[in-house]
């Protein structure tokens, strides 16, 4: 059975809702406590980016399978301003919000697969997967 869940982000509460949903699903899939924390943190970062830069968007979380592996896939979509310089946002310490600049590069390190699709003025979709060890 494929498990999936969908959270709309339009307020700060959406961030909390998304990470709680993510933790629940990660636990159901069978991730250990450390990986649960990794997945939850990644979702928190992605949800916050949506809230900060696009005001609203969605976090979609589902079970992923590929050649015998199981894992969790997170898709974050928004129709916000898009990312002008994708390379730049992946640099450690680069921030436009006054944060630590650890958000997106952090997510990439927490997860196993990571992909950004972004068009200026069209929006951004970030897809990221963590596999069960």
């Amino acid at each position: 059975m494929q498990v999936q869940t969908h959270v709309d982000i339009h307020s700060e509460w959406g961030i909390v809702a998304a990470r709680q949903a993510g933790r629940k699903l990660a636990r159901e899939i069978g991730f250990g406590s450390v990986d649960q924390a990794r997945v939850t943190t990644a979702i928190s970062e992605l949800a916050r980016n949506i809230y900060l830069y696009a005001n609203k968007g969605q976090i979609h979380i589902e079970e992923a399978t590929s050649s015998g592996k199981r894992g969790i896939k997170i898709i974050a979509t928004d129709e916000g301003p898009g990312i002008k310089d994708v390379r730049r946002v992946m640099e450690d310490g680069y921030t436009t919000s006054g944060g630590l600049g650890a958000g997106l590069p952090g997510v990439k390190r927490l997860m196993d697969e990571f992909k950004i699709d972004s068009e200026p003025d069209e929006g951004t979709t970030i897809t990221t997967v963590k596999w069960l060890r």
Partner: peptide, 14 residues
């Protein structure tokens, strides 16, 4: 600070 939290922070480079 819980081990899982510490590991996540280190992974993120914080």
């Amino acid at each position: 600070i819980q081990p899982a939290v510490a590991i996540t922070l280190i992974d993120m480079g914080i």
